[in-house]
Write a protein that binds this DNA or RNA. Sequence first.
RNA 1: GGCGGGGUAGCUCAGUUGGUGAGAGCGCAGGAUUCAUAACCCUGAGGUCGACGGUUCAAGUCCGUCCCCCGCUACCA
Length: 708
Amino acid sequence: MNPRHQRTLVTAALPYANGPIHLGHLAGAYLPADIYCRYQRLAGRDLVFVCGSDEHGVPILLKARKEGVDPQQVVDRYHAMIEKAFAAFGMSFDYYGRTTDPLHRETSQEFFRTLADKDCFVLKTESQLYDPKAGIFLADRFIRGTCPGCAYEEAYGDQCEKCGRSLSPADLLRPRSALSDAVPELRETTHWYLPLGRFQDKLSAWVGDKKDWKPNVLGQVKSWLADGLNDRAVTRDLPWGVPVPADVARKAGVDAEGKVLYVWFDAPIGYISATRRWAEAQGDPELWKDYWCSEDSKLVHFIGKDNIVFHCLIFPAMLMAHGGFVLPDNVPANEFLNLEGDKLSTSRGWAVWLHEYLEDMPADYLRYALATTLPEGRDTDFSWKDYQARVNNELADTLGNLANRTLTFAKRYFEGRVPPLENPSEADRALLAGLDGLPERVGELLETYKMREALSEIMGLAREGNRYFNEQKPWVTRKEDRRTCGNTIHAALQLVASLSVLLDPFIPFSCASLRGMLGFEGLRNSALREDEEARIHWADAGRPLLEEGAVLGKPEILFHKVEDSYVEAQLKKLEATRQDSAEGSGENAGGDDGEEDIPEFAPLIGFEDFQKLDLRVGKILEADRVKKSKKLIRCLVDLGREKRQILAGVAEFLDPEDLIDQQVIVVANLAPRKMLGLESQGMILMAEGPDGRLSPLRADAAPGSVVR
RNA sequence: GGCGGGGUAGCUCAGUUGGUGAGAGCGCAGGAUUCAUAACCCUGAGGUCGACGGUUCAAGUCCGUCCCCCGCUACCA
């Protein structure tokens, strides 16, 4: 820990309150953050750990509308669910807030007002789609319509969830408002933008100093900086969010009606408002400033890699613009966790939900298994088989068994007390000496966000304990040399006690119960910021913690083996969701997000609508890949009367050879469109298989024939 | 195509600023042991460190080219 830092504020990414927490979230941000914080508290550091639910934004509004409820009801539900699951998982937040908290609204508005007063924004007026029926402007995601690519009729204005294709609202066929079904019209609207370019130099200089940031984080950040930063809109026309302060709008000559802060603007301010709430709860409402506004305070953001740009550039720019706040000392972003070799996908159900897991297994098993495979440097894989192996081989066999064999031995042959250490042997002294320095070494690893290595270092100690136990053979010395036997058990108990401290940040529940078995009291509570009763700290794990003659508790099995049946059941459960989603059609052979059911049928159209289409049989004469394009194939198609150049976005699925000489069906009266400098004069119809494969519709008739 | 991150034992992954024989856990094969959750402990087999060039006395580690995987991004009429 840098001596200039007197206190630490740790944040974990605000989970979005439109769904439950899954393994990817835990591995990405929450578990490493919690390990870090528990360690810091054990070490006696002044630390505050905040988090909270991110409850604004379009997806929540849409979900609410879909369910026919108020958005508040949606976030109430998920907020409660997330908070409960986090608590059961052992997340030791000092405060878990939410962005619908009135104090958050106030904090965000103050922040916005300060930036406006300092003239940090620019105003831009542009034409956007407006819902005349609901009387509000519509964000891109608020336009629904039929996807021109796959005919999915619930496509968003920015992207089709069905085929993954990115869209703009103008692309949609039959666009309609997601709120009222009204046909949107263009109107002008004004928004506040944060001109990030103004902060480019300051950000570059600031990031340039960050030698200790992880390579994956620095790489991304520098790449963004090199590209140059653009203006970012910080407000939206939405009925759900933190309202743009009326006074600020008035001053700017803008009607604030229906305008809110863009969710990415208010969300990170949630870290601040949560700290304020925490300070209130401490009975000192100004206390939060010690952590946010004092140069000797260290700010650390734990996030997943998808959040890097916000936490390393945009939020810091906001803080710079505001002034008076500390900037993050580090942003130890993790990579992604895969599941059974495939990437997680909420919409495909390829995930393990925390609240479901906790229904049948202990939090610590998952904490341990995840901690050994955190994606610290690159994407990693979680598999149930690996989970089982970690729990059985390491927690149960190595650690649990060490504790158990030591404790039961002491109970049976030493009246359940800590035997004295008398004339210790070289081996006894070596074992105890081996503890010395370990807290510091592990602490250094944790300070530098190497949770996995720290854990593996500690487990090495458990292995050493087993080795020592074997070599000393107390079951032999018990009969011939009781003093030596007592020394062995004494030293082994001390080692187990130290383990119960060192492992506490990782598996706090088990360590607490282990300490119960050891009759070991007085350790700081790793989940509590202050613990007046506690006299034992992290560093004390380097010395013997148990008194000679102290009474031990009742030994119990600390970790139970995970049965094969459990693993099989979990795999089966996952496999079922994969089956479900594979049955539909769906684009994306790569298996991206996206609901993969068979699309619903589009609304009825009249015959006259159908007649507008001019479908013809065409013969593909030439086909070749458009260079510099991943998706486009250029075709020359004979339509009888004339030959047309048509571009088809199928290069990911088909080779030009698959198309040449094929007789296909062409939309002949589609307006021409230029792509990559080439004009496409029609569209070749394709059928899409369940795995995303495309195959052209063949027609056995002369080129130019009318299709009806 | 552009940008970023990766490609190291059968599997999951470590490998700081280039330097003693390339590691851990699991799995596998032997052995030892019985205090303990059929647990523990020891030994061993197993790797052209993605490919090819280059710099260097010395490269998994630096440079160049290429191949493959992941993420973001651009054209899916």
